[in-house]
Measured scan of single mutants.
Amino acid sequence: EALLLQRRRVTVRKADAGGLGISIKGGRENKMPILISKIFKGLAADQTEALFVGDAILSVNGEDLSSATHDEAVQVLKKTGKEVVLEVKYMKD
């Protein structure tokens, strides 16, 4: 459990079709971090076996998301290339 509370760096390699394969919720306007709300089976994020629903995305390719709005986070995630480095931390409810 202590492991979950540490920052983790996960590299996601996207397939030619399909994006990261995650849905996010939260954002500055909700006074919440950007959280992974869904991981789609078989897509890139799922294949890492290292990302979990409830993980907060702290940064994407080094771009800090700690004070991002939901829309800003969506845009940052959309413009990523084939390889995406996510810094995440599991957030307890």
Rank of each mutant, 00 (worst) to 15 (best):
V88T: 03
K25G: 11
R8V: 02
D16W: 09
G27V: 03
D55S: 00
K89D: 07
R9M: 14
F40W: 10
V53N: 02
E72F: 07
A45P: 04
L3R: 09
A50C: 11
V12N: 02
I39Y: 02
R7L: 12
L65Q: 02
I57S: 02
G27N: 04
L5S: 13
A45Y: 05
D46F: 07
R8T: 00
S67Y: 13
R9K: 14
E72I: 05
S67Q: 10
E87G: 04
I24Y: 00
D71K: 11
G26Y: 03
L4P: 08
S23V: 10
K92R: 12
L4Q: 10
I34Q: 00
V10D: 05
K38I: 04
D64L: 05
M32S: 15
I57D: 01
A50Q: 15
Y90M: 13
R8G: 01
R7S: 10
F40S: 15
K38T: 09
E72N: 05
D64F: 03
S59K: 09
A17L: 14
G18R: 11
V10T: 01
R13Q: 12
I39W: 05
A45S: 07
V12T: 02
S23N: 13
D93W: 08
Q47H: 09
L58C: 08
K25C: 13
K14E: 07
S67V: 11
I36K: 03
L58D: 04
S67N: 14
A45N: 06
A15S: 15
D71W: 11
V88H: 00
S66Y: 07
G21I: 02
M91N: 09
I34F: 00
I24D: 04
K41N: 15
G62R: 05
T11V: 13
K25Q: 15
D46R: 04
R13M: 13
V74I: 14
S37C: 12
D55F: 00
V53Y: 02
D64C: 07
L51C: 02
I57E: 00
G54H: 06
V10F: 00
Q47I: 08
K89Y: 10
V53W: 00
A17M: 14
A50K: 14
I36Q: 01
V12E: 00
G54Q: 03
N61E: 05
G62M: 03
G21C: 04
V88I: 05
G81C: 11
T11W: 09
S37T: 13
L35F: 10
V85I: 15
G19V: 08
A50Y: 05
F40Q: 14
Q47P: 06
R9P: 04
M91D: 10
G54K: 02
D46N: 06
V88D: 02
D46L: 01
K92E: 15
T48A: 13
G26R: 00
D64R: 05
E87Q: 08
M91H: 09
L65A: 00
K25L: 14
K14T: 11
E1D: 06
G62E: 07
L58Y: 07
G19D: 06
V85D: 15
V60H: 02
D16R: 11
A50W: 03
D64Y: 04
Q47S: 11
D16G: 13
A2S: 13
L20E: 03
R9V: 14
A68W: 00
Q47D: 09
H70W: 11
F52N: 11
E1H: 05
L3Y: 14
L4I: 12
E1N: 07
G18D: 13
S66H: 08
L51D: 01
E1G: 10
L3S: 12
I57W: 02
E1I: 07
A68G: 05
L86F: 08
F52C: 09
A2I: 15
E49C: 14
S67R: 11
A17H: 14
D93K: 05
A56P: 00
L58R: 01
V53H: 04
K92P: 15
V12Y: 05
N61W: 03
R8L: 00
D93I: 10
E49I: 04
A15Q: 15
V53M: 05
I34V: 08
G19S: 15
T48V: 05
L35R: 07
I36T: 03
F52L: 12
A45Q: 04
V12A: 06
G27I: 00
E63S: 11
A50V: 06
I57N: 01
R9T: 15
A56S: 08
G18K: 09
G54C: 03
S23D: 14
V60C: 13
A15M: 12
I22D: 03
A45T: 06
T48W: 01
I22S: 00
V12I: 15
V88E: 00
L35V: 13
K89L: 11
T11S: 09
K14W: 08
D55R: 01
I39K: 04
K38V: 06
S67L: 12
R9I: 12
S66L: 09
S37G: 08
L20M: 10
G54S: 04
A68P: 00
L58T: 05
A17V: 14
M91P: 06
V76F: 08
K25F: 13
I39H: 03
I24T: 07
R7P: 12
V84A: 08
E63G: 06
V60Y: 02
L58A: 03
D64N: 09
D16I: 09
G21D: 01
E87F: 05
T11M: 12
I24M: 05
E49S: 11
I34S: 01
I36P: 00
E72T: 08
G18W: 08
Y90R: 10
A45I: 07
V88R: 01
A56G: 06
L65K: 02
K38D: 14
I24H: 01
R7T: 14
S23K: 10
T69R: 07
V10A: 04
G21N: 02
N30D: 15
E63A: 11
S23Q: 14
G42V: 08
A15D: 14
D55T: 02
L35S: 07
E1F: 06
E49F: 08
I57V: 08
Y90H: 12
T48I: 03
A50H: 08
V53K: 05
D55C: 03
A17E: 13
E72W: 06
F40P: 08
F52H: 15
G62Y: 04
Y90T: 11
A2L: 12
L77F: 06
G54V: 01
S37E: 14
S67E: 12
D64T: 07
F52R: 12
Y90I: 05
I57A: 01
R13V: 15
G62D: 11
I39N: 04
V10E: 03
R9G: 04
A15V: 13
V12M: 08
V53T: 07
D64E: 07
L65F: 06
E87S: 05
D93H: 11
D93N: 08
L51E: 02
F52W: 07
E1W: 06
G54T: 01
G21F: 04
E87T: 08
A56Y: 04
H70N: 12
Y90Q: 14
S59L: 05
R8Y: 01
K38E: 14
A68S: 11
V10K: 02
L51I: 08
S67M: 15
G62A: 06
T11K: 10
D55Q: 02
A50E: 09
I34K: 00
S23C: 13
G27A: 04
E49H: 13
G62Q: 06
D16H: 13
R8N: 01
E1K: 15
L58F: 12
F40T: 15
I24G: 01
I22W: 03
D93A: 09
G26C: 02
A15F: 13
